[in-house]
Amino acid sequence: MHILVVEDEHKTADYLSKGLSESGYRVEVGRDGYEAWYLIEECEFDLIILDVMLPGLDGWQLLKRIRRRSQVPVLFLTARDAVEYRVKGLELGADDYLIKPFSFVELLARVRTLRRRGPVREAEYFRVADLEMDVLRRRVTRQGERIGLTNKEFALLELFLDREGEVLSRTYIASRVWQMNFDSDTNVVEVAVRRLRAKVDDAYTPKLIHTERGMGYVLEARA
């Protein structure tokens, strides 16, 4: 998912860029309205996170231009908390409106919600090597043998399969599966991955879940 953050306050822009990147998203930053519009014309984005008070084009003007061009989801993230501003943003075509200061966990939840509203359908079936997952029937097999998983193990495996071949950080996994900020003193991700491996990997060849030291985990069939 490719996200454009339009934010002129450098500390907030850097915080958003770092947090969203660590959560697995590809992020570009526009520091003012005109720079953001240039990026929008040059790139295709899946979501735009937009401040109201910007140099050059303000958020209202930029949103009007965006809506003449596309229906990409737009989330206003601004300190303008009066009801009339929220109403104005939604009437101009924004999909959501979040007030600063904000919780990053809530921001991620809203990003996920807007992504689900998009035209992309969630996958219903995955297969990698001899590992198969039927999402709708909540059925996982390997070499034709049924594997019983807990709800969190199923969600973790579905995430790995959906992002096959991509290295997923512990921060991203924690935010997607447990909807929480990652605490470096918590080993919940490592424990969950170890238990999942015991069920889907230990008794089978080839191994599919791999550790990338200092980076995270990846699911893929390797020669």
Results as ranks from 00 to 15, higher is better:
K18I: 07
L4E: 03
R170P: 05
A123M: 08
N151A: 12
R121N: 11
M180D: 08
G19Q: 09
G89W: 07
F45Q: 01
E9Q: 14
D202A: 13
T171I: 13
L90E: 15
V111T: 10
R176S: 12
R142M: 05
S169F: 02
P55M: 07
G144V: 07
L156E: 03
V218A: 04
E164M: 05
P101G: 07
L157A: 08
V72D: 05
I3F: 03
A129Y: 12
S17K: 12
E212H: 04
L90R: 07
E190Q: 14
L39D: 10
L149Q: 09
L16W: 01
D185K: 12
G214V: 11
A82I: 00
A94Y: 06
D81E: 15
A109P: 00
A94G: 12
A174G: 01
V128S: 07
R139S: 08
E106H: 06
E41W: 00
E164C: 10
A198P: 01
I49R: 00
R127K: 15
E124N: 11
L50A: 12
A174L: 01
F104K: 04
V6C: 04
Y85T: 06
Y172Q: 11
Q179V: 10
G216W: 01
D46T: 09
S184Y: 09
A109F: 07
M53N: 15
K88A: 13
A36V: 07
V6Y: 00
E42R: 14
L50P: 11
R176Y: 08
V105L: 05
L16A: 01
L90C: 08
T12F: 03
A198K: 14
D202N: 14
V188N: 06
F104R: 03
R176N: 08
G33N: 09
